[in-house]
Each structure stands twice: as structure tokens, then as C-alpha cells.
Deep mutational scan, measured.
Amino acid sequence: GLPPGWRKIHDAAGTYYWHVPSGSTQWQRPTW
């Protein structure tokens, strides 16, 4: 699974990851 606080988001551009507490997003899968 993903580290705490991360969500996987799907949209028209593809899949990305959202860090809910900080509001940051990234294309790379977050690592622990």
C-alpha cells in the first residue's frame, strides 16, 4: 500500500499521487 496520508488519483492525464496533509502531488509512486 501507500504511505500514510497518500491517495492515488485517476484523471484524464493518467494516475498520480496526492499527499493529503501537505497538498502536494507527484507522478512517482511515493515510497516509505
Rank of each mutant, 00 (worst) to 15 (best):
W18L: 15
W32Y: 10
G23N: 11
A13I: 11
I9Q: 05
W18E: 12
R7H: 10
W32V: 10
W27K: 14
G23F: 03
A12I: 10
P4I: 05
P3Y: 01
W6H: 00
T25K: 15
A13K: 14
T31H: 09
R29Y: 11
T31M: 12
P21A: 10
G23W: 03
K8T: 12
G1N: 13
P4F: 07
W32G: 09
W27A: 12
W6S: 00
Y16M: 07
Y17S: 00
T31W: 08
G1L: 14
H19M: 04
G5Y: 04
G5L: 02
Y17D: 00
D11M: 09
T15F: 09
W6K: 00
A12V: 11
A13T: 14
S22H: 03
S24Q: 15
Q28N: 11
Y16W: 12
S22F: 03
W27M: 13
W6G: 03
Y16T: 01
Y16Q: 03
P4D: 08
S22N: 02
R29A: 11
Q26L: 06
Q26N: 05
S24L: 15
I9G: 04
G5V: 02
Q26P: 01
P30T: 02
H10T: 15
T15Y: 08
T31Q: 12
T25R: 14
H10V: 15
P21E: 11
I9R: 05
W32H: 10
R29D: 07
Q28T: 13
Q28R: 09
G14S: 05
H10G: 07
T15K: 04
T31K: 10
H10L: 11
G1K: 13
P4V: 06
P4T: 06
H19Q: 00
P21G: 06
Q28M: 10
V20R: 06
V20L: 09
W18H: 10
H10Q: 13
H19Y: 04
G14D: 04
V20S: 08
L2Q: 06
A13Q: 13
V20H: 07
W32S: 09
D11G: 15
R7N: 05
A12W: 09
A13R: 14
R7Q: 09
P4G: 06
W27N: 09
G23M: 06
Q26Y: 05
H19N: 01
T25L: 14
L2K: 06
W6E: 00
A13V: 11
A12G: 12
V20W: 13
K8A: 14
W18F: 14
K8G: 04
P3D: 01
D11Q: 07
D11W: 08
R7V: 15
G23E: 04
P4E: 08
Y16F: 08
P3W: 03
H19G: 00
D11I: 12
V20N: 03
G14I: 06
Q28K: 08
W6Q: 02
G14Y: 08
Y17Q: 01
G5P: 05
H19A: 02
P21S: 07
T25P: 02
L2T: 02
A12P: 11
V20Q: 11
Q26K: 05
Y17R: 00
H10Y: 11
S22Y: 04
T25V: 15
K8R: 13
L2I: 05
R29I: 13
